[in-house]
Design a protein around this nucleic acid. Structure first.
Lengths: 261, 261
DNA sequence: CGCAACGTTCCACGATGCGGAATGCTGACT
DNA sequence: AGTCAGCATTCCGCATCGTGGAACGTTGCG
């Protein structure tokens, strides 16, 4: 299952197994993995063997399996690399706006928070790096959706589901899809208490990645709607600076088109 | 390369590529990956395509690659699961001993820190979760080596290398191997300023995992050698409690023996 | 404008991973 | 203790899936 089917069977299957392990609490036996993945036990056994050998999976006593040590290291590495690059930019946002700033990435049909700089106020958003949330109820999610071809956006939304997080959450696919052209045109998205009651969030795409976005969030009182048109350009400027640095390592593209695909 | 060769070729190769990406600063082009892995470009291209599809790898504009968002999430997950379980036990150690306590796992030919509770003193060890260190110069490393068959231990040491971190670091394989039977017999290992000058570290294996260990570390002055025989049982008791909980999730073993393997 | 380097696509070959069936464990029930 | 059931594990012949050399496109440099 998963987002799967990308050319290399064994890799896709292995990924699927990891995903199942990530959901399962801890110490999952082979039989459960086989059942959940729909693969024959012998196949699961072989794949697990390989993954254990590589450290993706840990084999606990009692013949049960859990996520492995290599993930800890690589995960740290991934978020640290990105975080180190992004943090100064996020800090600049906090300087200028005062609210908690986040960098988020598209991860399958969710958004994962990759870096964060907390705002200056005592009452502030607190989102853990590594946390994964659905696309439909967050500013970053909507802004990322808007970068995608509509049919892809729809597919992701349907796949992930659109549960109501608050009374304001948009739970209808078509209504959400209808917002996207506007978001795309204006270059930012607003989450108006759709994820967390009383919390407004303003998000913009990072022009480089195509799958990255940054945002600031705070209580509605401190982020009034009429401030949005003033704040959006600030976010966009920072996003552009971050994008430049992200692509700065290598020559990279200069084409203006927002959709490299 | 890597620790590789575990039955499923494509998976091993993909892992190798990720490893290379983890070392490379950011935005690595395909050609570099092909060269570093020794694989033909077309193969690398296909594997990367699959990994991008699964979120293991991010494709930056400018045709360059970096570690992907899925790693951030899974890494968090892996360390959080373990960390949540281990932290109360580590906290108990800090309560009783006062020094920073760590949980570490064997990760290939290194040790990765998986959880940490800082000690009560102002001057204290500071080790980042996710950090990877060599086996030969740390208490946890030595205690993990002692759990292994000597030939495996030797292989890991030779593979990782044994650079001197301090004047006290043991840099000779045979001298280190000679320590292991003692460590194994007494059930703990001491790092006597071998990793960091002036820092002593006491480590014990977690009987369950076989590949987990916990430790306390502090300045030599606060962790005198003659306190070790008194402290070791404290660590061992906590390790046993942690082990019980680790295996507790599923029915698992009930045998009292410290070595289920 | 032409060239060179690099990324990408194609395709026929065969090694590689597949999974059904047989075997070996382990722990539960009587 | 003995038996049994449910797992995990190993085996092995088959076909699939991945492989990588070669051809093609593209990008950016001289």
């Amino acid at each position: 299952m998963a987002v799967s089917d990308t050319g290399v069977q064994s890799l896709d299957r292995a990924t699927g197994l990891l995903e199942i392990l990530a959901e399962a609490p801890a110490g999952t036996p082979l039989s459960v993995l086989a059942a959940a993945s729909g693969l024959p036990p012998s196949t699961v056994h072989r794949l697990l063997g390989a993954m254990v050998g590589q450290g993706w999976v840990r084999r606990l006593p009692g013949r049960t399996y859990a996520l492995g040590p290599r993930l800890i290291h690589l995960g740290e590495r991934a978020s640290r690399t990105l975080g180190a690059l992004a943090r100064p930019h996020l800090a600049r946002l906090v300087d200028e706006i005062g609210e908690t700033a986040n960098l988020a990435l598209l991860d399958g049909d969710r958004v994962v928070y990759a870096a964060q700089v907390p705002g200056r106020h005592a009452m502030r958003m607190f989102t853990e790096v590594g946390r994964r949330v659905r696309l439909h109820s967050t500013g970053v999610g909507k802004v990322l959706l808007a970068q995608l071809p509509p049919e892809d956006a729809r597919a992701l939304l349907l796949h992930a589901g659109m549960p109501a997080r608050t009374p304001r959450t948009v739970t209808d696919v078509d209504r959400l899809l209808a917002e996207l052209p506007t978001i795309r045109a204006q270059g930012y998205a607003v989450d108006d208490g759709e994820q967390e009651t009383g919390v407004r969030c303003l998000a913009v795409p990072v022009p480089a990645g195509g799958d990255a976005a940054l945002s600031v969030s705070g209580p509605e009182g401190r982020l009034p709607v009429d401030a949005v048109p003033r704040l959006a350009p600030v976010l966009q400027a920072v996003a552009a600076a971050l994008a430049a640095e992200l692509t700065g390592g290598s020559p990279a593209i200069s084409s203006p088109g927002p959709r490299p695909e």
